[in-house]
């Protein structure tokens, strides 16, 4: 069964059909060509597919595509234009990525935190990214990068 959905994808209105049971991740990657959210587990266990739906952090792999009708969906691509997000700069400066596969989801999670809590403690940063697994870095540089942006945004 196909269902029409209309939503905003990174600020651009889109309308398309979704199959029954199709995930938002599949729709974004295969139908909209937005490859920035990644498939890591399809079980909601790794956070590589993290996106924002109406400003809330969500897992695209567990979100049925038909449920985003009328919503605002943002991926890391929304943060990169027209200028890089300070988090992206900080991740580059702090060497906060190795393979880079978890990075888009991690940055979406971090931006969602900073938008709601501009001066998080280290523990709050840890909690905010605790749904996003990273197998390479040991998390340390990721936490540092996020705290550095928080300090910089508050002082600015």
């Amino acid at each position: 069964m196909t269902t029409p959905v209309h939503f905003t994808h990174n600020g651009r209105p889109v309308s398309l059909f979704t199959e029954a049971g199709e995930s938002l991740l599949s729709l974004l990657r295969l139908k909209l060509g937005d490859q920035t959210p990644k498939y890591g587990c399809g079980q909601g266990g790794c956070g590589a597919c993290s996106v924002r739906i109406d400003g809330q952090l969500r897992l695209a792999c567990l979100t049925l595509a038909e449920t985003v009708d009328g919503a605002e969906v943002e991926t890391v691509a929304a943060l990169s234009a027209p200028n890089l997000d300070p988090l992206q700069e900080a991740f580059m400066d702090h060497f906060a990525a190795q393979c880079g596969y978890c990075t888009p989801g991690m940055i979406v999670a971090a931006r969602t935190l900073l938008d709601t809590n501009p001066r998080p403690s280290r523990d709050e940063v840890i909690e905010a990214i605790s749904g996003n697994l990273c197998r390479c870095t040991g998390y340390e540089p990721i936490i540092d990068a996020i705290l550095a942006v928080a300090a910089q945004e508050v002082s600015a």
Binding site: D123, E127, I129, G138, Y139, I142
Partner: peptide, 14 residues
């Protein structure tokens, strides 16, 4: 079979 049963230290366990 998934990351909730295959456990690794999270950012709070460093």
């Amino acid at each position: 079979f998934d990351f909730s049963s295959y456990v690794m230290p999270g950012p709070g366990d460093l």
